[in-house]
Amino acid sequence: MIKTMPIAALILFVSLSGCANDRSLAPPADSEQMTITVKVPKELETETLEVMYRSAVCKYITHGASGQRVELEGYHGINVQLQRQGQSDLYQARLPMDGGGACQWHLSNVMFGVKYGNPARFGENATYGAGGGVVVMFDRNRPSLSSGLPIKVDGDLTIRKDYYPWVKESFIGGYRKRVSLTGEGNIYLMYQALEARKVYFEPVFYADFVVYSAGPKVKREGNNTVINYPDGSVETDGRWGPNFRKLQEIRKAAESKQ
């Protein structure tokens, strides 16, 4: 069970229910710290920082396809809210690398990101969708939400990526309008930074370059999603979402004319 708490509460015991042994976090006062910093542009907001600690002492027991016992590193997840630094656009959290306790917890990975702050700008029924996420691995354990191979980096990690607002309308199965962030890669960018002690994420948001998509109203062969780009061009070739490279080209062409 993942629990939400302020960062200061990390120094307290956080017991997991249903455990025979004491699996609580008890970070030592002299633990090295991991600093997560997000520079948040106007119109975006920070997402909750999801933190995962793992333990080689307190095992997670499961069973294989043939019923054999399989022992994996135990896990303990918490949620942390990044704190704004004064009146700046920087939001930060500091996490102990050593989670301490009887299980000797160690920081394994974090998941965080940004989201569109006011989806209602695009209609009262609009809600936030997805995109703008980052997963960083500090060991070799796979995060629960991951696909593909991580980008491996040495030392501290600095991420600076471009994002565009994407308004997506869906009709089949009920009408939905979601406002997502579209950028390079999938919903989450994934990194492995085994030596990092600082992670800095700076999303660059181009609010004026909105891309719209509308899914088919009837499920029938040949009925594809229609994607409308900021320059007025349209795609109906069946792709699932916006072409990021095309968005970059449209923006750069517009900026060159200014």
Rank of each mutant, 00 (worst) to 15 (best):
I61P: 03
I61E: 11
I61L: 12
I61A: 11
T62G: 10
T62K: 13
T62I: 06
H63W: 14
H63L: 07
S66C: 10
S66D: 13
Q68N: 14
R69F: 10
R69D: 02
R69K: 15
V70R: 15
V70E: 15
E71S: 12
L72T: 05
L72Y: 05
G74C: 02
Y75E: 14
Y75I: 15
H76K: 03
G77S: 14
G77C: 06
I78D: 01
N79D: 12
N79C: 12
Q85F: 07
Q85S: 12
Q85M: 15
Q85K: 12
Q87C: 03
Q87V: 12
S88H: 04
D89N: 11
L90Y: 07
L90C: 05
Y91E: 03
D98S: 10
G99S: 06
G99Y: 02
G100H: 02
G100Q: 01
G101K: 00
G101T: 02
C103N: 01
Q104H: 15
Q104M: 06
H106Y: 10
V110G: 06
M111P: 01
M111Y: 09
F112R: 05
G113V: 04
G113M: 08
V114H: 05
K115H: 09
K115D: 01
K115F: 09
Y116P: 00
Y116H: 11
N118D: 15
N118I: 09
P119K: 03
A120M: 11
A120G: 10
R121D: 09
F122Y: 10
G123H: 02
G123K: 00
E124S: 15
A126Y: 00
Y128L: 11
G129Y: 06
A130F: 14
G131H: 01
G132D: 04
G132R: 02
G132V: 07
G132T: 08
G132H: 01
G133K: 08
G133F: 07
V134S: 01
V134W: 05
V135T: 10
V135W: 04
V136G: 04
M137F: 08
D139Y: 02
D139I: 04
D139C: 06
R140M: 09
N141I: 12
R142A: 10
P143M: 07
S144D: 11
L145C: 04
S146T: 10
L149C: 09
L149P: 06
L149F: 09
K152A: 13
K152T: 07
V153K: 13
D154R: 15
D156N: 14
D156A: 07
L157R: 05
T158R: 14
I159H: 04
R160K: 13
K161N: 11
D162T: 02
Y163L: 06
Y163M: 13
Y163K: 11
Y163A: 06
Y164D: 03
Y164K: 11
P165V: 00
P165E: 00
W166E: 01
S170W: 04
F171H: 14
G173R: 04
Y175A: 13
Y175Q: 10
R176I: 00
R176N: 12
